[in-house]
Lab assay of single mutants.
Amino acid sequence: SQTQRTQDENEARRIAEEWKRRGYDVEVRNRNGHWEVTWD
Protein backbone atom coordinates (compact mmCIF):
# COMPACT_ATOMS: atom_id res chain seq x y z
CA SER A 1 0.00 0.00 0.00
CA GLN A 2 1.03 3.61 -0.48
CA THR A 3 0.33 6.66 1.66
CA GLN A 4 0.11 10.33 0.74
CA ARG A 5 -0.06 13.05 3.40
CA THR A 6 -1.55 16.52 3.13
CA GLN A 7 -2.61 19.33 5.45
CA ASP A 8 -5.73 19.92 3.36
CA GLU A 9 -8.82 17.76 3.92
CA ASN A 10 -10.30 18.73 0.55
CA GLU A 11 -7.12 17.63 -1.21
CA ALA A 12 -7.16 14.37 0.74
CA ARG A 13 -10.73 13.70 -0.39
CA ARG A 14 -9.82 14.47 -4.01
CA ILE A 15 -6.86 12.10 -3.89
CA ALA A 16 -9.02 9.39 -2.32
CA GLU A 17 -11.70 9.74 -4.99
CA GLU A 18 -9.09 9.51 -7.75
CA TRP A 19 -7.68 6.23 -6.43
CA LYS A 20 -11.17 4.83 -5.81
CA ARG A 21 -12.05 5.57 -9.44
CA ARG A 22 -9.00 3.55 -10.47
CA GLY A 23 -10.31 0.59 -8.48
CA TYR A 24 -8.11 0.82 -5.39
CA ASP A 25 -9.21 0.24 -1.81
CA VAL A 26 -8.70 3.65 -0.17
CA GLU A 27 -8.63 4.80 3.45
CA VAL A 28 -8.54 8.44 4.64
CA ARG A 29 -7.36 9.20 8.19
CA ASN A 30 -6.72 12.34 10.19
CA ARG A 31 -3.55 12.00 12.23
CA ASN A 32 -2.02 14.76 14.35
CA GLY A 33 -3.67 17.49 12.30
CA HIS A 34 -2.76 16.18 8.88
CA TRP A 35 -4.55 13.85 6.50
CA GLU A 36 -3.28 10.50 5.30
CA VAL A 37 -4.66 8.79 2.22
CA THR A 38 -3.67 5.12 1.96
CA TRP A 39 -4.48 2.95 -1.04
CA ASP A 40 -3.71 -0.60 -2.09
Rank of each mutant, 00 (worst) to 15 (best):
S1W: 15
S1M: 13
S1K: 13
Q2T: 13
Q2G: 14
Q2P: 06
Q2S: 10
Q2D: 07
T3R: 04
T3F: 11
T3Y: 09
T3S: 11
T3K: 06
T3W: 12
T3P: 08
T3A: 08
Q4S: 08
Q4G: 05
Q4K: 10
Q4V: 15
Q4F: 15
Q4L: 15
Q4N: 06
Q4E: 09
Q4W: 15
Q4I: 15
R5K: 11
R5T: 13
R5L: 13
T6I: 10
T6Q: 03
T6F: 15
T6E: 04
T6G: 05
T6W: 08
T6Y: 15
T6N: 04
T6H: 07
Q7N: 12
Q7L: 11
Q7K: 14
Q7A: 13
Q7W: 11
Q7V: 10
D8H: 07
D8E: 06
D8T: 12
D8V: 03
D8I: 03
D8A: 04
D8S: 11
E9K: 04
E9P: 06
E9F: 08
E9Q: 06
N10W: 12
N10P: 07
N10K: 12
N10D: 13
N10A: 14
N10V: 11
N10E: 14
N10Y: 11
N10F: 11
E11K: 04
E11A: 07
E11F: 04
E11C: 00
E11N: 04
E11Y: 05
A12G: 02
A12I: 03
A12T: 01
A12R: 01
A12P: 00
A12L: 02
R13A: 06
R13N: 10
R13K: 10
R13H: 10
R13G: 04
R13S: 05
R13V: 08
R14A: 12
R14S: 09
R14M: 10
R14G: 05
R14C: 07
I15K: 04
I15S: 02
I15D: 02
I15L: 12
I15F: 06
I15W: 14
A16F: 05
A16R: 03
A16M: 05
A16L: 03
A16N: 01
A16P: 00
A16Q: 05
A16Y: 07
E17M: 08
E17P: 00
E17R: 08
E18T: 08
E18Q: 09
E18L: 11
E18F: 15
W19R: 04
W19H: 04
W19S: 02
W19I: 07
W19N: 02
W19A: 06
K20Y: 08
K20A: 12
K20F: 09
K20V: 10
K20P: 00
K20M: 11
K20G: 07
K20W: 08
K20S: 10
R21L: 11
R21F: 07
R21M: 11
R21T: 09
R21V: 09
R21Q: 12
R21G: 09
R21E: 10
R22A: 09
R22N: 06
R22V: 05
R22D: 04
G23Q: 01
G23R: 01
G23S: 01
G23N: 03
G23T: 00
G23F: 02
G23V: 00
Y24H: 06
Y24G: 04
Y24E: 02
Y24W: 08
Y24S: 02
D25K: 14
D25L: 13
D25M: 12
D25I: 14
D25E: 12
D25W: 14
V26A: 08
V26H: 01
V26M: 02
V26T: 06
V26W: 01
V26Y: 02
V26D: 00
E27Y: 11
E27L: 11
E27T: 14
E27W: 10
E27Q: 13
E27R: 10
V28C: 04
V28G: 00
V28K: 01
V28P: 01
V28T: 04
V28Y: 04
R29H: 14
R29S: 12
R29F: 13
R29D: 05
R29N: 11
R29C: 10
R29W: 09
R29Q: 12
N30M: 13
N30L: 14
N30T: 06
N30P: 07
N30Q: 14
N30F: 15
N30W: 15
N30H: 14
N30I: 12
N30K: 13
R31K: 12
R31Y: 13
R31G: 06
R31F: 13
R31C: 09
N32H: 09
N32L: 06
N32R: 04
N32V: 04
N32W: 06
N32A: 08
N32S: 06
N32M: 06
N32I: 04
G33I: 02
G33V: 02
G33P: 02
G33Q: 03
G33R: 02
G33L: 03
H34Q: 12
H34K: 08
H34F: 15
H34P: 01
H34D: 08
W35I: 02
W35N: 00
W35K: 00
E36F: 11
E36H: 05
E36L: 08
E36N: 03
E36W: 09
E36T: 07
E36Y: 14
E36I: 10
V37R: 00
V37Q: 00
V37Y: 02
V37E: 00
T38M: 09
T38G: 03
W39H: 07
W39C: 00
W39L: 07
W39S: 04
D40P: 09
D40R: 15
D40F: 15
D40V: 15
D40I: 15
D40S: 15
D40T: 15
